[in-house]
Design a protein around this nucleic acid. Structure first.
Length: 436
RNA sequence: GGCAUGUUACCCAAGUGGCCAAAGGGAUCUGACUGUAAAUCAGACUGCUUCGCAUUCGGGGGUUCGAAUCCCUCACAUGCCA
C-alpha cells in the first residue's frame, strides 16, 4: 500500500446532521448485532471511551472485509473515542474456525512478518495524533508469557464447555463432516482473554468485529462480566453481500487486497466502478465519508440516470483515494478513461497509452510472440488450453479487434510507442510492451 | 483402543468393474442484449504439440484385458462402543 492513505485523514469527518455517532453508524448499516443498544448509544454519546477491533494475520495484507472494520474504527475515532488496533500475533497462530474446514497453521516467523504488515496498514486508516491517537497492540504480548497452567486455572475456569459448544462457529463445524480441532475450538477463549486484558490494562469498553465473529465478541463480554463483574460492549457489523447472492470483495475469484502490490490501484478502482446499481448506495454508506445528503443525491442519480453511473464513479473515486491516495487514484482514472474511452486506441498519444498500460498487468515481449503465449504470460488466462478456448469463443481482442486465429502472433499490429492492448472479454485488460 | 461409515474436479453432489475426463446444481469465464450494471438466453469450464493424446476421482500398493468403482495399507474425518 502506498504511504498516502493518511493524506485524506484530515478531510474525513462524521456527518454533523446526526445526533451522535451511534445514529450515524446505524444509518450507514454498520450495526447488525450489538449488546444493549440504549446503553451503547449513551456510552458513545458520552465522554471518550476506549474500544478495539482485532485483525488476525492470515495473509500479508488486509482485504476489503477488513476495510469495513477499519472505517468503523475511524468513525468512532472521529467522534472522539480512543481506538486500539489489535493485530493478533497469538490468535493468528491458532486460527479462528471457518465454517467449512480446519485451517492450515502458518509458521510463527511468517505470522510475525504479517503482523508487521498489518500493523502498518491499520495505523494508516486512523489518526496517530491527538488525545485519541490510535494505539497498536499485539495479543502475543500477553498470551506468550502465560503458562498452560495459568491459562487453565485463571482463564479456563470461567468458560463453560456447554456455552462454547453452542457458538455458531463451533456447532457448524461439529455438525459438518470436517469436525473441529481443540486448537480452533479454543480460539474463542483466546479472543475473550484479549478483551479482558484490554479492559484491565487499557480500560477498553467496546469491541467491534464482523457479525460472523459475534460468538468471539460475546466471549469477551461474558468473560469480563464473570471475572470483573463489569459489563462491556460489542458491535457486530453485517456481512457485506452482493444483491445477487455472490460473495462481496472478490474479483475473478481473488480477494481484493488493500496492498497495492497484491491488488493494483487500477484493479481496485475497477472493482468499485463495477458495483451493481442495487448495491451502490449501501456501499457508499459503508465505505465512504460522504454525508447523508450527498449519498441521497447519488441515490437519486442512480434511479434517474443509471447509465451515467455517477454513484459508481463517486464510490470508486472515494474508496480508491482513501486506500491508495490521490495520485494513484488519478492514474487509475486516467488509465480507465484511455482504455474504456469511446475513441480509437490508436488516436491516443504514446505517453498516455504507455502510462495506462503500466497500470495494468503488463509484459515485455517481442513481435514474434503468439497471442496464446501472451494471454498466458499476462495471466489473462491460466493455461494455453484456456487461451485457445477463449479465442475460439471470440473472447480475445488485440487492440480492440477480435482475434480469430489461435495461431496468430503479435506481428505488426502495434499502437504508438510499440505497445498493444490485449483484452479478454469485455473488461479484463493487459498491456504488451514490444521491445525492438 | 475396537467396530462401522466416509474422503470425487473451485464448492455441493451423482457414479459402486468397460458406454467415465467422470451426471446434476452453484460459482466462474465467453458470446448476445446493455450502461465497464442486473436479469435473461446460448456456449465453455484437467492439461497438451486439441478431430488425437496424456493425467485425474484422499496417498501408496495390488487384482483384472480393463478400476473412481474390487482387495490391502496409510492418512484424515464422522458415528457408536471402550
Amino acid at each position: 500500500m502506498s504511504a498516502t492513505a493518511s493524506e485524506s485523514l484530515s478531510a474525513q469527518r462524521n456527518d454533523p446532521t446526526f445526533d451522535d455517532v451511534w445514529d450515524e453508524i446505524n444509518w450507514r448499516g454498520l450495526v447488525h448485532v450489538s449488546t444493549n443498544a440504549d446503553e451503547l448509544k449513551a456510552l458513545l454519546a458520552g465522554p471518550p471511551i476506549t474500544y478495539y477491533c482485532g485483525f488476525d494475520p492470515t495473509a500479508p495484507s488486509l482485504h476489503l472485509g477488513n476495510l469495513v472494520q477499519l472505517l468503523l474504527l475511524r468513525r468512532l475515532q472521529l467522534a472522539g473515542h480512543k481506538p486500539l488496533g489489535l493485530v493478533g500475533g497469538a490468535t493468528g497462530l491458532i486460527g479462528d474456525p471457518r465454517p467449512t474446514a480446519e485451517r492450515t497453521l502458518n509458521d510463527s516467523e511468517t505470522v510475525a512478518e504479517w503482523v508487521q504488515y498489518l500493523q502498518a496498514q491499520v495505523s494508516k486508516f486512523l489518526s496517530t495524533e491527538g488525545d485519541n491517537a490510535v494505539r497498536m497492540v499485539n495479543n502475543l504480548d500477553w498470551t506468550s508469557p502465560m503458562s498452560a497452567i495459568d491459562f487453565l486455572r485463571d482463564v479456563g475456569k470461567y468458560f463453560r464447555v456447554g456455552t462454547m459448544l453452542k457458538k455458531e462457529a463451533v456447532s457448524a463445524r461439529l455438525n459438518s463432516d470436517a469436525g473441529i480441532s481443540f486448537t480452533e475450538f479454543s480460539y474463542q477463549v483466546m479472543q475473550g482473554m484479549d478483551f479482558l486484558e484490554l479492559y484491565r490494562t487499557r480500560d477498553c469498553m467496546l469491541q467491534t468485529g464482523g457479525s460472523d465473529q459475534w460468538g468471539n465478541l460475546t466471549s469477551g463480554t461474558d468473560l469480563i462480566h464473570k471475572a470483573e463483574g463489569a459489563s462491556a460492549h460489542a458491535i457486530g457489523t453485517p456481512l457485506i453481500t452482493n444483491s445477487d447472492g455472490t460473495k462481496f470483495g472478490k474479483s475473478e475469484g481473488n480477494a481484493i487486497w488493500l496492498d497495492s502490490t497484491m491488488t493494483s490501484p487500477y484493479a481496485f478502482y475497477q472493482f468499485w466502478l463495477n458495483t451493481d446499481d442495487a448495491d451502490v448506495v449501501q456501499r457508499l454508506k459503508i465505505f465512504t465519508f460522504l454525508s447523508r445528503d450527498q449519498i441521497t443525491e447519488l441515490e437519486t442519480a442512480v434511479a434517474d440516470a443509471p447509465f451515467r453511473r455517477e454513484a459508481q464513479k463517486t464510490l470508486a473515486f472515494e474508496v480508491t483515494s482513501l486506500v491508495h491516495g490521490g495520485a494513484a487514484t488519478e492514474a487509475a482514472i486516467a488509465a480507465s478513461a484511455a482504455l474504456f474511452g469511446q475513441g480509437e486506441l490508436s488516436s491516443l498519444d504514446a505517453d498516455t497509452l504507455a502510462a495506462a498500460l503500466r497500470e495494468l498487468r503488463h509484459v515485455e515481449t517481442s513481435a514474434e510472440s503468439t497471442i496464446v503465449q501472451l494471454l498466458v504470460d499476462t495471466a489473462l488466462v491460466s493455461s494455453a488450453s484456456e487461451a485457445r478456448r477463449a479465442i475460439s469463443q471470440g473472447g480475445v481482442y488485440l487492440n480492440n479487434i477480435a482475434v480469430a486465429d489461435d495461431q496468430a502472433t503479435l506481428g505488426g499490429e502495434l499502437l504508438p510507442g510499440n505497445v498493444a492492448v490485449l483484452r479478454r472479454g469485455k473488461k479484463t485488460l493487459a498491456g504488451i510492451f514490444v521491445s525492438s
